[in-house]
């Protein structure tokens, strides 16, 4: 890994220069009390005062709705067109846990049957994480094997060293390329111990006890107890950086059509509804159990890793105040 520094007051210049090269910069912007990634046009729009963005950067690779292809029927002659993704993007200000999530998401979409669209998007995007200086009650990265110091899945990782400069870890070749494009902005440095600058997030549960325990409570009432409050919306899955379920929709008329991929959520009753009317996950507690089991058991079986990175978004968004931390602790204690 290479290490650089960037003067904090050079950040606006960094963004302006990237923008001049024709790339889109996405940076955190405030709407109401929440922070979202938005297209950068001027530096004063950027919000630095946030623990975590409301939506995760997964939307950059896996948008909430995207075109898979369009087709046309010109009097019996059919033609199919796949989208060409050329727009180059730089995402600034995601958190280190988001990097871990992107790493998982790419593993999911690119491993066995690589998804071309996602691959293209990934190739076109440089992810810059901004290491956390603060955290809230809903953050639990350190309980699920990562921490604010994590660099996995980021191309570049910025840490504000509190001395007027960012310490920049160059994690990937893509990150290196971006840094190399602006040699006058970045100075070389050695590896620095950044941990003191970072948020100290407490560990809430013991993952190594929890993971083997979860399947043993599969048949118990614990899921019902936890999920009576769940109203079955899709909010938790949609804000989650690792939730990868999608629905495929055709929007067509006799002359032309589009196939779209849209987000879907296992919290919806319709998610598992069969055409026969039978629903194997008949009630909300079954659906909630699936969510937790997927994150902490099925992913381990199928992909050899848990698929929760502790970003806390699902907790912050839940209309009913459900907290996965609390529920995991209750499994641990069960």
């Amino acid at each position: 890994m290479n290490y650089k520094t960037l003067n904090t007051n050079k950040l606006p210049e960094f963004f302006e220069k990237i923008k001049k090269t024709g790339k889109t910069v996405l940076a955190p912007r405030k709407k109401g009390n929440k922070t979202f990634f938005a297209t950068f046009d001027s530096f004063d729009q950027i919000n630095f005062d946030y623990v975590q963005t409301a939506l995760s950067p997964k939307s950059v690779l896996f948008p909430r709705v995207e075109e898979l292809f369009t087709y046309k029927n010109d009097d019996g002659t059919y033609s199919v067109k796949e989208p060409e993704l050329k727009n180059e993007v730089v995402v600034f200000g995601m958190r280190p846990c988001d990097g871990v999530a992107l790493d998982y998401l790419c593993d999911f979409f690119l491993n066995e049957n690589p998804d071309k669209l996602l691959q293209d998007r990934k190739n076109n995007t440089t992810f810059i994480s901004l290491a956390c200086k603060s955290f809230d009650n809903d953050c639990f990265c350190t309980s699920v094997g990562s921490s604010p110091a994590e660099t996995l899945g980021s191309d570049l990782c910025f840490t504000d060293m509190g001395n007027g400069s960012y310490y920049v870890e160059v994690v990937t070749d893509k990150g290196q390329k971006l840094v190399d494009a602006f040699p006058d902005l970045f100075a070389d440095t050695k590896e620095i111990n950044k941990v003191e600058q970072l948020a100290q997030v407490p560990v809430r549960f013991e993952l190594k006890n929890l993971v083997p325990k979860i399947p043993t409570v599969f048949e118990t009432n614990i899921w019902l107890d936890q999920s009576l409050a769940c109203i079955g919306c899709g909010a938790c899955a949609y804000v989650c950086p690792t939730c990868s379920c999608f629905d495929v929709q055709d929007e067509c008329n006799p002359k032309a059509g589009t196939r779209l991929r849209c987000w879907d959520s296992c919290a919806f009753g319709q998610f598992t509804l069969h055409a026969s009317g039978h629903n194997p996950r008949e009630v909300q507690s079954n659906r909630w159990r699936n969510r937790v089991m997927h994150k902490f058991n099925y992913s381990v079986q199928n992909m050899n890793t848990i698929s929760c990175v502790g970003c806390g978004r699902c907790i912050r968004v839940c209309p009913a105040g459900m907290s996965i931390i609390e529920h995991l602790i209750s499994v641990e204690e069960a």
């Binding site: 912007r29 709407k31 990634f37 938005a38 297209t39 939307s59 950059v60 929007e251």
Partner: peptide, 18 residues
């Protein structure tokens, strides 16, 4: 409108301009 909003996160806050 069915073309507006298809794509990336860029249109989350500034849908009209994306």
């Amino acid at each position: 409108l069915n073309k507006l909003g298809v794509g990336t996160i860029t249109e989350v806050l500034n849908a009209r301009t994306a």
